[in-house]
């Protein structure tokens, strides 16, 4: 069997005295949706931040195995290099370029390739043919994703003026415009209504099938997670407490105890609050 697309071993991230991530191991595979779940503050976003170069992990190994190429240690790259190697993310608090249009947002995502084609501006400035072709391709790619994510009617709108749900879709489209191998989504369904969540689930499965890329998904919506994930990792207080298929996770004692009080519940915060209180009490 091939090495997995991403393998994380012994990832630890400390902030002063706080151990936000504690020796986590996980893998994400090509053509699979891998979910990362856990109560609020469990350290999920921190794992993403380490993965995508925003934090330097205290220790641990983050290896990206691209087909036919040498493996890369993501933790050694400068932050902006990570997406150039094929790992791209979205943000829990949407980070679009609010005063640029949707189309422009998607073109910014193609910066690295375009910059080379524009010879760092020179070829672009005088409008050489090579640049014009590259630009056209870039626009076509952007248009493909605009249509695919049903954004045609807002393509020329400023991203900041769009509704929350639409902004989430733009962020996914923008990430896909970097041509990733691994798409990391941080709570893409947060703030969506059930119908929108359903559409999102189909979209993610569609992307996985059509492009065969790996998807790493942080999500609190258990319906979505259980419905589309191939594999689920559960973290709590920075530690991984379980791993398995949705069925296995559904019946895992520790997970149920820690987290999934009622599997079909949408609203998590209240449960987690109770849960955390219980845990604290138990520990003391």
């Amino acid at each position: 069997m091939n090495a997995p697309l991403l393998s994380v071993t012994g990832l630890t991230m400390r902030f002063g005295g706080l151990v936000a991530v504690d020796g986590v191991n996980l893998t994400a595979e090509t053509n699979r949706i891998t979910a990362l779940i856990g109560p609020n503050g469990a350290g999920k976003t921190t794992i993403f931040n380490c993965l995508t170069g925003f934090y330097k992990p205290t220790s641990g190994e983050l290896t990206l195995n691209r087909p036919g190429q040498l493996p890369v240690s993501l933790q050694t790259l400068p932050g902006y290099q990570v997406s150039r190697h094929g790992v791209v993310r979205t943000f829990q608090n949407i980070r679009l370029f609010p005063r640029m249009t949707v189309l422009e947002n998607l073109l910014v995502a193609q910066h690295v390739g375009l910059m080379k084609k524009a010879a760092f501006g020179v070829a672009g400035l005088i409008g050489l043919k090579g640049w014009r072709t590259a630009e056209k391709e870039a626009i076509d790619r952007a248009r493909f994703w605009i249509e695919r994510l049903d954004l045609t009617s807002v393509a020329d709108e400023e991203a900041g003026n769009l509704s929350y749900g639409v902004q989430r879709r733009v962020e996914i489209a923008r990430a896909m415009n970097t041509n990733p191998l691994l798409l990391c989504l941080d709570e893409p369904a947060a703030g969506l209504n059930p119908k929108e969540t359903g559409v999102l689930g189909e979209l993610l499965q569609g992307i996985r099938e059509q492009f065969g890329i790996g998807i790493l998904l942080i999500e609190h919506d258990m319906g979505l997670v259980m419905g589309i994930s191939d594999r689920i990792h559960v973290v709590e207080y920075g530690r991984k407490i379980a791993e398995g298929t949705p069925e296995q996770i559904r019946s895992d004692e520790r997970v149920i105890k820690a987290y999934l009080g009622e599997p079909d519940e949408e609203e998590l915060p209240a449960i987690v609050a109770e849960d955390v209180a219980g845990q604290e009490g138990g520990r003391a």
Binding site: F54, R99, L107, V108, A109, H111, A118, G121, G124
Partner: peptide, 20 residues
């Protein structure tokens, strides 16, 4: 691209980094 990156930088530096 160079000019779009400038504007993107003005809008959100963190998002810029995540896009390479």
């Amino acid at each position: 691209p160079i000019g779009r990156a400038w504007e993107a930088l003005r809008e959100d530096e963190i998002a810029c980094r995540s896009l390479g």
